[in-house]
Design a protein around this nucleic acid. Structure first.
Lengths: 344, 344
DNA sequence: TTGTACGCGTTATCAT
DNA sequence: ATGATAACGCGTACAA
């Protein structure tokens, strides 16, 4: 199989390599006829420019990268779409890359920046446990998005952060449940031990209970299993089964993610409990499906579109030198739906 | 900001570049002490090898790429996970890349192969409308997965194909509904006009009706809107609303995707119709959530895990020259659950 | 075991 | 408008 290079094309056309390069890259200084001839040979021979070689030379890529932690999270799918659309508007290309749960996102970022000469990075998901020093190495602007609340350990002028305050919003949900008369609120939580959204949301739960002088009952806090998808419906289902079997009394279940809540509802229903008549159920995230199931799920919706748009805008502003790093917190929206109900 | 290259590291360590290279790439011919010293300086200076330069030199990457069309499809998330796991077992790395709906997957494949010197490609989703000629340019083995049924227009020894026969499985679902006594089966279909799974599944519907001598009522076939996500719950919801408003009589709704079916159920419920007492609903795909909603959804489950595993295995076998291209068809599994019911 | 030098395919600079 | 040529950063053949 013959893989033509730019040299081959040049030779075939009887021109220099730079002319071919100009044809490919839409440079102005080129005779339209020459260009057309070159483009035709390119098509004829199926020439595909080697991106590695291009990136090697290129200084400036007019591109950004989006680094997503946890590809399976449907929550990100929407954000990515919006980000992509916004990038297109600015004539930037977007490199999407996903990182393993156990991979260091800053290391990954370091790599792609070097490889592709990007102008900026958006981190979706993941944690904040990065040293100032490492972050400094990343000498392109970057924005963390949907990252819970702002950690105190790194200097704020190193990076931007956009997201909702998970602790606060979580407390708001529990406030709401308490307002409905619930006091025995069971908690289904994932990844509470790590520095993650799970922990923040659990803290919000504690915070709200304390604020209302309701004693915390540790027997009502159930951790999901580590063996299967942490935020999966299956995990919500199994964990809620355990809760039911524990015999502990409860009038509401609050799960730190909609997927978990959906599993929880199923588990309750199968045990003969009605939702919301016997038990109220609340979730967090506001994923699409939460509004289509029956009963539809009361949850906290994050303003995904708005956040995504602002993330891109902010990043471009920083790239253009128009702005400094910022830390923006959005309010979540409490979506009161069918799965929660006032009690006696 | 100083970005050290391999030369800088070599100079700092007082060694040649090749020694540094050997240290990085775990080559055997190197003094352990030298290696340690080099690795330390690398860490100290935060040296990150430039991947573009590496790829440019590299002939053989021990890596494959997975090209996914439609990142938002939760159906693929599972497959990708399995593929990744299998790749790790073989000590291959996996490059995940997503393609726009309107992008040509073969062109995209051509690019990544050149850029990364990959050994093989797995296509997830997407269509088959590619010319033999173009496919031939892709001189690494590739496997199409979950691609519906096999098209006749390209030579089968050019590529492999793994998937379920969407037309047949779709017919099976309709057979089942008819077996329950349903004759007025409404259809919610997406992308029926293109050469896609939507069309195949619709054909299966026609096939089954004809086989049972039931007249096809075009007024019961509803196309989803093109304006919003083709396979989204919202689209299923809105389309079913239209169906209900049309006044056409029906006892069952068959949607060509679970997401659509979930939207359909919601629409029916909101209109005061009970599922399955008044209307049976069936989906297709077997995504996780279909088993957790109430009523749980009768659907066709594709053997995702098995297919993903076999896809990887087959690709590796072809790479190793152990096998020729193959075309494997899996049987779907009819998951009879709560959303369908026998009628008088 | 280690170092030198060349080339991978492209773009940018400079000359023409 | 076009062509020759020097980088880009790395791996590797070959020499030492």
């Amino acid at each position: 199989m013959f893989e033509p290079t730019i040299k081959d094309i040049a030779k075939i056309c009887g021109v220099g390599v730079s002319t071919v390069s100009r044809a490919i890259n839409n440079h102005p200084d080129i005779n339209p006829e020459t260009k057309e001839k070159i483009m035709n040979t390119i098509k004829e021979y199926g020439y595909v420019p080697n991106n590695s070689a291009r990136n090697l030379k290129r200084v400036d890529a007019k591109a950004i990268a989006v680094l997503v932690k946890g590809i399976s999270n449907p929550f990100f799918a929407n954000m990515i779409k919006v980000i992509e659309k916004e990038c297109k508007k600015k004539h930037y290309s977007m490199e999407l890359s996903h990182i393993e749960t156990d991979e260091d996102e800053v290391d990954a970022a370091l790599k792609v920046v070097k490889e592709k000469r990007l102008r900026g990075i958006i981190f979706l998901g993941g944690l904040f446990s990065h040293s100032d020093e490492k972050l400094r190495k990343l000498n392109v602007p970057f924005v963390f998005s949907t990252a819970g609340s702002i950690p105190e350990n790194i200097s704020k002028n190193q990076y931007s952060n956009i997201g909702v305050d998970d602790r606060k919003e979580s407390a708001r949900m529990v406030d709401y449940l308490i307002g409905l008369g619930h006091e025995k609120i069971a908690m289904v939580v994932a990844e509470a031990d790590e520095e993650s959204i799970g922990k923040l949301r659990l803290e919000g739960y504690f915070e709200s209970l304390q604020a209302h002088n309701i004693a915390i009952n540790p027997k009502l806090v159930f951790q999901t299993s580590d063996d299967i998808g942490h935020f999966s419906m299956e995990n919500g289902y199994l964990t809620t089964k355990k809760l039911i079997e524990s015999g502990e009394e409860f009038t509401a279940v609050y799960a730190v993610a909609d997927a978990l809540a959906i599993g929880a509802i199923r588990a309750l229903l199968e045990s003969g409990l009605r939702v919301p008549e016997d038990v109220s159920v609340a979730g967090y995230d506001g994923i699409d499906v939460s509004g289509y199931i029956s009963p539809s799920l009361t949850t906290i919706r994050q303003p995904v579109e708005e956040m995504a748009k602002d993330t891109v805008k902010l990043l471009f502003d920083i790239i253009a030198g128009k702005k400094d790093h910022q830390h923006i917190t959005y309010d979540g929206e409490l979506l009161v739906r069918e799965s929660t109900k006032e009690i006696g």
